[in-house]
Design a protein around this nucleic acid. Structure first.
Lengths: 123, 123
DNA sequence: CTAGTGACTTGCAGTATGCAAGTTACTAAA
DNA sequence: TTTAGTAACTTGCATACTGCAAGTCACTAG
């Protein structure tokens, strides 16, 4: 289990919003899950199929954290057997500008990177 | 030493600009150093004095990586003894929108977080 | 009865992080 | 001429996190 921040969003390192934000989304995988949610993916197995091939234990951990921070909502889409799907909350959808800025920076500054999804631009 | 990406910016995990960008700045500390550079800090000891208290070995590593990715320029400001200062390159300054989006998201969604610097807004 | 799917969990080796302390090369004060 | 102090790092080491493979549980379809 990670323990970078408590679930109600209180900051640990400082009051700086950049530091606080990084305490939540500052790692290699979290924003990729958010990106997938923006592109319409909902199911655990869909996230696993993304080209970056996120390890299953990391995915489970990140989804759990995102739910704790209320960035993502987890709800069952069937019973017998119970299965869940994920969706962005309002708080999660507000990360759009962060993603958008990264897409722009990456496309401009990293040779070979090419946006595969348009969904971030106009979500 | 970290080895998330090669120095000329080629992507490892996928062609997605979000993934590529996260390979470079996707961790808890890198963007805090960039934030400090935006706020006018130049010297190693200035970064250390920031409220988040970045560990010295991490700071050295992140500065090294940022220089490798040409986000930051390192140059001596004196000899006898030789001492260096750091500054953002054009590529580095273009991260402004990423920082700005994080500031906005943090201020809106994390209770208690409050921007201490204006320099990101109008850099 | 077997295979497949979805959503995870577990084990474990390897990598990264965080803390404290040490290093080198000076400058300024006592 | 010791003694302090500053700047920019480096080193050692315990702990935490990551990544890979494999396993689990509850079904459904053939």
């Amino acid at each position: 289990m990670t323990q970078r921040q408590n679930a109600d969003g209180n900051c640990q390192r400082s009051l700086c919003p950049v530091a606080c934000t990084l305490d939540i989304i500052g790692d290699k995988w979290t924003l990729l899950v958010v990106r997938d949610l923006f592109s319409g993916k909902k199911m655990y197995s869909e996230f696993q199929r993304s080209p970056e091939k996120i390890p299953s234990n990391i995915l489970a951990d990140r989804l759990k954290r995102l739910v704790e921070y209320k960035i993502v909502l987890k709800e069952p889409y069937q019973t017998h057997p119970i299965r869940y799907q994920y969706a962005l909350t309002k708080k999660g959808r507000e990360l759009r500008l962060v993603l958008k800025a990264m897409v722009q920076w990456g496309e401009k500054n990293i040779p070979g990177s090419k946006a595969l999804i348009k969904s971030i631009e106009n979500a």
